[in-house]
């Protein structure tokens, strides 16, 4: 895929990255959005999709999930290129000043500027403590295609929103769904947990996966009741490990940026110390910084408009009003 060119790459598809993609589209820039997770929404979608957010201007209370849906709709109006499930890895400066960005998937993209809306960094699923050899052979961290579970005995591991939502979504297609969680208490939204208990899914707590076995693909799981120590063996041909995430800035620490306490130092134009690279949202640091979603949105508009003018010095920094658009 080498040779692909855009005006701007947004790294991070959280709320701030999505808003940056919208603004870049509004300014007529061709845009690509990169995120390590397979779905957009960043921290909000991965950590608290059901929490009510009260401090987004003009929205008295909105669930994380819904906010992400709206932002996605707003950004999609300008059809950015979505490069999800892969992370920004390396940059090389080309002779003409543009940047060659290489992703972990091997995809390469040439861009004039980059906005790092990287939040707390690259999210990595927390691995199952056992059965690593079955990853991709029946064991997955994300449910992206429900049909792939048709007719399977599915074991879902975890107690958060992802685990419970996937267990519920899989019921109509899977042959059976068992959900285990290492604690009796779930962190998922109460209403979803109640729905899970009413459903046909077998819910076992406080249980952990003791071992997985199979041949080319996983076939059986041994579960351990951590209260009694008893082992239970079940048939399962698919395992969904939804144990949450860890995050760090990973490859960005090698880009020559000034990073202090996991934050990227920017100036009032949201420029980092690397030409052509801007940052916005939770990842930035400057005197007076406040880490709020509303501040992040403002920084996204600042970063994109300043990046636009850097690419075309004759252009106006002020983008015009969105109300002027038919």
């Amino acid at each position: 895929m080498s040779g692909d060119e855009v005006d701007l790459v947004v790294v991070g598809a959280g709320p701030v990255g999505l808003y940056a993609a919208y603004y870049a589209g509004f300014r007529g820039m061709t845009t690509a959005v990169v995120d390590s997770l397979p779905e957009p929404g960043g921290q909000v979608a991965a950590l608290y999709p059901e929490k009510l957010i009260h401090d987004v201007a003009g929205l008295p209370g909105i669930r994380g999930r819904e906010l992400v849906r709206n932002l996605l709709q707003q950004a999609s109006a300008y059809s950015p290129r979505w490069l999800l499930g892969q992370s920004a890895d390396e940059i090389t400066r080309l002779d003409d000043g543009r940047i060659l960005l290489r992703l972990t998937s091997g995809t390469e993209i040439v861009t004039r500027s980059i906005v790092l809306a990287a939040g707390i960094g690259t999210f990595k699923p927390r691995p199952l403590p056992v059965g690593a050899e079955f990853l991709g052979r029946g064991v997955d961290y994300f449910v992206t295609d429900l049909d792939a579970y048709a007719g399977h005995d599915v074991l879902v591991v975890g107690g958060g929103d992802s685990a419970v939502d996937w267990a519920l979504a899989l019921q109509p297609v899977a042959r059976s769904v068992t959900l285990i969680h290492r604690r009796d208490r779930f962190t998922a939204h109460e209403a979803s947990v109640a729905e899970l208990h009413r459903s046909d899914a077998l819910v076992r707590t406080p249980f952990v996966v003791h071992a997985l076995s199979g041949d080319r693909s996983v076939r059986r799981a041994i579960l351990r009741d951590t209260a009694s120590g008893e082992l239970h063996e079940i048939d399962c041909s698919r395992v969904v490990a939804a144990l949450g995430f860890t995050a760090d800035l990973g490859p960005l620490t090698r880009w020559g940026l000034r990073i202090v306490d996991r934050h990227i130092i920017v100036d009032s134009t949201m420029s980092t110390e690397v030409p052509g690279i801007y940052a916005a949202g939770d990842v930035t640091e400057y005197p007076g910084k406040v880490r709020l979603i509303s501040v992040g949105f403002g920084e996204a508009a600042l970063a994109v408009n300043n990046a636009y003018v850097a690419g075309d010095p004759s252009a106006s920094l002020f983008p015009g009003h969105s109300t002027a658009i038919a």
Binding site: L47, I120, F123, R182, R183, F245, T246, A247, D248, R262
Partner: peptide, 9 residues
């Protein structure tokens, strides 16, 4: 238990 949940260690 908290350690197992913290996304930033």
């Amino acid at each position: 238990s908290c350690i197992e949940e913290c996304p930033v260690d």
